[in-house]
Amino acid sequence: MFAAKFGRNALLGLAALAVTTAAGGAQAFEPTKPIDFVIMAGKGGGADKMARLMQSIVEKEGLSSRPLVPTNKPGGTGAEALVHMNSANDPNHTIMVTLNSFFTTPLRQPGLKVDILKFAPVGRMAEDTFLLWVHKDTGITTFEQFLAEAKKRGKKWVMGGTGKNSEDNIITDHLNNAYGLKIKYIPYKGGGAVAKDLAGQQITSSVNNPSEALGFYEAGSVIPLVAFTDERLPMFPDVPTLKEKGGNFSYFMQRAVVGAPGMSKDALAYYTALFTKVYNSKAWQTYKSKKSLMGDFLAGAPLKSYWGVQRERHTKILKASGAIK
């Protein structure tokens, strides 16, 4: 509050003073205005719910002296958000919640001139998981039965998923390629609509995140057949992984917070500390286990190298499906 009364230059001087005098000890960066908290997806989706949960944890525990102001930028599978970040006026006050479109959209649209390795690695809050779901009335209870039935029905087997060339599309492509299936993929606007259409048997399967399918799963109308994870999920101990079934494939969605390109070191340190606190909060940990999220907190150089690996992998995936050359 006190600092806000000073001009911008005075404040910078003050901050510089703080760095030189109290080396290491005190926090070198403090936000001086509300923080632009960009969400790379529309209102009501998984990313949006998560972002608003983070915001409310920051608010409730009083973790930041300035509020996080969420703005949804869903346009063009994250393109709108990425461009906004790339051209941020004040990178020290601009952060974003990301999905895997953080990797795929810059690859599919090189014209955006977005290099994700230039973004500031604030913190990975979780990795979301994917399962294969069918309606219980199909009578299918195992992955083998699914393969047999999907093979038999050919193009009449319909997979609903969120968006084209998205996470759901990538998994569907993998199933088609690896098992010689002809599943038809229908893109939807959001995971909730997919879950509803599976429950209403408008489509025959989905690869929803647990958070999206949970309601219908608990009501007994949809059942999970296989998890696209490395190990079984604690919440679904009886559901085998695809690896157990002989497949060499797992897939996760990063739920990470990133800073705009050009964010200062001190600001990055501030946001990493802030989101470490959010990550360790009881509310976040409860949410993580309730929605079957995985992944430890990752920040700084390890997070950047994780992005590098993911970018590599998505380049291969998109090339294989013909989405990019």
Binding site: G44, K49, R52, L53, A199, G215, E218, A219, S221
Partner: peptide, 14 residues
């Protein structure tokens, strides 16, 4: 809906 999730409820058939 996001609010209900934050307050710890599970909207859905149950």
């Amino acid at each position: 809906l996001a609010g209900m999730v934050i307050w710890g409820l599970q909207p859905g058939p149950l």
